[in-house]
Design a protein around this nucleic acid. Structure first.
Lengths: 216, 216
DNA sequence: GTCTATAATGGGATAGAC
DNA sequence: GTCTATCCCATTATAGAC
């Protein structure tokens, strides 16, 4: 864990922001720490230092570590779901909608890798604190998308297959460009993924999906 | 975190085992705790209780938490790599080899979900403790597999595509049946994944890969 | 090898002055 | 809202008897 950096300039500027903005900025720092160290491994002292305030001051805004963690996950889901225009919007060309869906999900992996990772860690650990929210906010959307696939199949617009596992496959592949980026970078002999790698991934994923659906 | 269970019967039996066996059994308990709680979140006391010995006794066998963690990851990789007969073995039919590869990887996800998850958590967190081992033991094997894909392409046995990202896709999809099983179970409205779900996943993944490679 | 006892540290959380 | 000071507890780790 690298030492916290001084953020005096940012701190001063922040003092004039209102509470909502400040809390959002704290979350933005916290998401990264949680993603790097996990819930237990993340220390409030480090998060506070990264955000440019004292640990006690941090606890003025968030009464407990769990409260901060849940707010972080809420923010992650908000951002995520806002970007992921559901497939359910409707009866456009499946080919175009799938391309857009894959692109949007990969874009999130590229622009918000820590958000994706903190969510992934929570799920892998069994979603012991955030399970209820996932059930309420994520699962219904996934089921909606699956229902769209099934409608397309029923209408003969895509080849018949298991719609649920198709969605699992799309999620797995797109998520991995955030979650497993460190390993991918090692294989590619790079320090981190570049824009080109995401484009290559997008081409690969799109091809696999469309080929499986007999849409190319 | 559920309370530790009494394991008196197992404990007694274990006392007659030799040191290697006992250490292996401790690792088997530890991998699950690390996967559920992450490195920092896992406590030696819980691991010791699950393994049926005292915390102090656990530390007789493993001098530190980090040493135990690294041994756990070593064991995970040993088991994993032993099962994953590399593609590189040679020039069989690409169709059969890919089917076998996907099946072997999914079987590992099904039989050793905690192993997969503890590895995933380590990578997502940036592989800060185990990065060197991944570089030495995992990356070369992945590169070997990628090289096989490229040989197949050069020989015209599969359609041309980005071999690296093809492997990333296969890994992402097969891994996810261990790592994201909790979320999948929620979508499927089940307590956990059943054998049938893995079979459905295998069919889906195989279809996507073979279709992308123009092998079906 | 297994136990009791105990250091030593770090981190979450609270109280109260200003 | 921000600071200093402090409490309390869990946890890793060690020492030493048996």
């Amino acid at each position: 864990m690298p030492p916290a950096k001084a953020v005096s300039a940012a701190t001063v500027k922040r003092r004039v922001l209102n509470r909502d903005k400040l809390e959002a900025e704290i979350c933005a720092m916290a998401v990264r720490v949680f993603a790097e160290a996990g819930y237990e491994g993340a220390s409030l002292a480090l998060i506070a230092a990264r955000a440019g305030l004292s640990k006690q001051n941090l606890m003025y805004y968030f009464p407990s570590k769990q409260a901060l963690y849940q707010r972080v996950l809420d923010a992650v889901l908000d951002d995520w779901l806002a970007r992921m225009a559901s497939l359910a919007d409707d009866g456009q060309d499946p080919r175009d909608m799938l391309r857009a869906y894959i692109r949007a999900k990969l874009r999130f992996s590229r622009e918000q890798p820590w958000a994706s990772r903190v969510y992934a860690m929570e799920v892998i650990g069994g979603a012991q604190v955030y399970g209820a929210q996932i059930r309420q906010r994520v699962v219904p959307l996934l089921r909606q998308d699956i229902a769209v696939f099934e409608k397309w199949i029923a209408a003969g617009r895509i080849a018949p297959l298991n719609a649920t596992h198709l969605l699992f496959a799309i999620w797995a592949m797109t998520q991995s460009y955030a979650d497993f980026a460190p390993q991918m970078a090692l294989v590619l002999d790079q320090k981190q993924l570049r824009r080109q790698d995401f484009d290559d991934g997008e081409a690969m994923i799109t091809r696999m999906v469309l080929a499986a659906l007999r849409l190319e």
